[in-house]
């Protein structure tokens, strides 16, 4: 008797708790409404506004005239510059970052070096912002550099490219290290047992395994460089070279421009490019998880 009582007592509130409102899985989703509402207003709505405004003229009707300016030579040059800067820095950052990831991955997973590099990578890749431009200005700035006076500091793309590589390498470490960690030591040993050389391991085993992850990372870095604004704004705010700078200019001086929604149109162009790049990234990511992890 004494044994059965607790279970009965324990069972009762469960039944009591299963009031229709709470247990009905039809209504349970309403628990996520605050989240959905918040994301709707501050993420989906702004994106929707950009898309809507880009294809609507000031009169209110559909008007693709503004969108067609994406193909005008002046606008195209911003996209070409953006693509150039992003391509150079993503490939360079990915190659160098992969080398660094390999060095980190082969070390002690609990070691201090790995910890320092990971924390440092997080800061420099994601939270650097305008500070990175200041740091390079004082290191290699044309007049103020402590290390050297680089005359090419304000040249596009090499000057800003160097600063971009500085945050692309850490991002590569963050996104590529999991793939490197997934490379099993047994595969290397198996290759060696079968008489394979280091070259043969990387050519026939490690390389093909890591290739999708690597290409995916290149795409992610490309999107990252494409959308970066803070660093390039602090580097040079007189001349617009890339799309984000021009969006900034269009936003802060909306009055003087021929078309009011130039910022929206440029943003639409960015969304299109980033969507293509990120779709490629997602596909490659799926391919990566087949073997690694």
């Amino acid at each position: 008797m004494a044994v059965t009582t607790p279970s009965e007592v324990g069972a009762q509130p469960v039944r009591a708790g299963r009031r229709p409102l709470l247990s009905s899985s039809r209504l349970a989703w309403t628990g996520t409404l605050p989240f959905l509402g918040y994301v709707g207003v501050f993420l989906l709505l702004p994106t929707g506004i950009v898309l809507w405004d880009a294809v609507h003229g000031s009169s209110g009707g559909f008007d693709f005239g503004a969108v067609s300016t994406l193909w005008s030579s002046s606008t195209r040059s911003y996209f070409v510059n953006s693509a150039e800067l992003s391509a150079i820095t993503s490939v360079l950052g990915a190659v160098l970052g992969a080398v660094l990831s390999y060095a980190v991955a082969t070390g002690n997973p609990e070691g201090l070096i790995r910890r320092l590099y990971l924390a440092g990578s997080g800061v420099l890749a994601q939270f650097g912002g305008v500070t990175l431009a200041f740091a390079f200005l004082i290191t290699i700035g044309p007049t103020s550099g402590l290390l050297l006076h680089a005359g090419w500091f304000y040249d596009f793309p090499q000057g800003i490219g160097l600063i971009y590589v500085y945050f692309q390498i850490p991002l590569m470490v963050l996104v590529f290290l999991p793939a490197m960690d997934g490379l099993k030591a047994q595969w290397r040993e198996a290759t060696e047992t079968l008489g394979g050389s280091a070259w043969q391991f990387w050519r026939y085993v490690g390389g093909p395994l890591l290739a999708p992850a690597f290409l995916g990372a290149v795409l992610l870095l490309f999107a990252n460089a494409l959308s970066a604004f803070a660093t390039i704004a602090a580097w040079e705010n007189q001349i617009s070279y890339v799309v984000p700078q021009q969006i900034g200019t269009a936003l802060s001086s909306e009055v003087g421009l021929s078309s009011v929604n130039q910022a929206d149109v440029l943003a639409l162009g960015m969304i299109a490019v980033v969507a293509v790049v990120m779709t490629g990234y997602t596909l490659l990511q799926r391919r990566t998880t087949r073997w690694l992890r």
Partner: peptide
């Protein structure tokens, strides 16, 4: 994860009216 794919520089354009 969506904010990772919508650049801040794009988001800010739509946020201006909000």
């Amino acid at each position: 994860l969506l904010p990772l794919t919508i650049p801040a520089i794009v988001l800010v354009v739509g946020l201006a009216p909000i």
